[in-house]
């Protein structure tokens, strides 16, 4: 895997807007952003309605993912290009999801919606029609997904990377600062976790830093990239971006995203929690 296999720039997307084997998919935290406008021919995946189980806290299952992609007109041999707002947080989350269910060719648009907008590129309101497919997903690849017990077992032994902002890591904030702060879980972080905010992976315009800069970032923060790594945030979307950096761009084999993240860990009874900056 190399950068060009998993990341495309806006010019590449522009050149493939009418390519029938390329499906551009917008995934946004603000799921209404697509209604306003989107990249021409892009379809929408709603991270909450389409990707989560409607009742219990978990993902849609394999059959649910097959149904979703079939309805969206995505075939197994299509190249899927994901983009979204918030510096691709939820697009990265969807990317990880596509990999979890074994989709072969999936890429992120570097910089996502923000870069596209800051470049003043065209956005349209028309919704494309794609004929339905018969998509077949693979069983979940749990080698890239961490659960709460994996996190507790990793304390003091594997790399734990907390990608939230320093204020969330220290316990000063409970959620990203564009969301209300009233939450039920306890503030803080998993003991022995290093705070390497997701934002350090990206430039102001949302594009990823170079492989050399990224490698230097994790080494400078004392992450031994030869060890197993678990990344987490609040609900697993920002850490999906860090998972993308470590697993897809830097090609590290043992990196898992903990999608339960702080909203689960901070609510568990009896697990250790550390407060403060950790330094």
């Amino acid at each position: 895997m190399s950068r060009s296999d998993v990341l495309v720039d806006a010019d590449w997307v522009q050149a493939h807007l009418d390519d029938p084997k390329v499906v551009i998919v917008e995934v946004d935290e603000d799921t209404s952003a697509y209604d306003k406008n989107h990249i021409r021919n892009a379809v929408r995946i709603d991270w909450r309605k389409d990707l989560q189980d409607p009742v219990r806290r978990d993902f849609v299952d394999q059959a649910g993912f097959e149904k979703l992609l079939s309805e969206k007109g995505i075939a197994n041999d299509d190249t899927v290009v994901l983009y979204g707002g918030n510096n691709n947080w939820f697009a990265s989350y969807a990317y990880w999801y596509f990999k979890l269910y074994g989709h072969e060719s999936v890429k992120l648009l570097d910089g996502g919606r923000k870069k596209w907008e800051l470049d003043s590129r065209d956005l349209v309101a028309e919704v494309p029609e794609r004929p339905a497919t018969e998509y077949r997903a693979k069983a979940q690849d749990t080698s890239i997904r961490a659960f709460r017990d994996d996190v507790v077992a990793a304390i003091g032994s594997a790399n734990l990377v907390d990608v939230r902002s320093p204020d969330e890591f220290s316990g000063r904030l409970l959620a990203p600062a564009h969301l209300p702060q009233e939450q039920s879980q306890r503030p803080g972080h998993v003991p022995s976790a290093r705070n390497i905010p997701w934002s350090k992976n990206a430039n102001d315009d949302g594009t990823f830093k170079s492989d050399e800069e990224l490698k230097a970032l994790y080494e400078a923060e004392g992450v031994d990239l030869s060890q197993d790594t678990i990344a987490y945030c609040r609900i697993g979307e920002r850490s999906a971006l860090t998972w993308f950096v470590l697993h897809e761009l830097l090609d590290q084999s043992s990196v898992r995203n903990y999608d339960g993240s702080w909203t689960e860990y901070g609510s568990l009874v009896g697990v250790p929690i550390e407060l403060g900056s950790g330094k």
Partner: peptide, 19 residues
């Protein structure tokens, strides 16, 4: 250090919940 980011609304507005 980055803490949050929002797009401006159609009327140019934004809001953060900080500390």
């Amino acid at each position: 250090e980055f803490t949050a980011e929002v797009p401006t609304s159609a009327t140019g507005q934004f809001r953060f919940f900080a500390a």
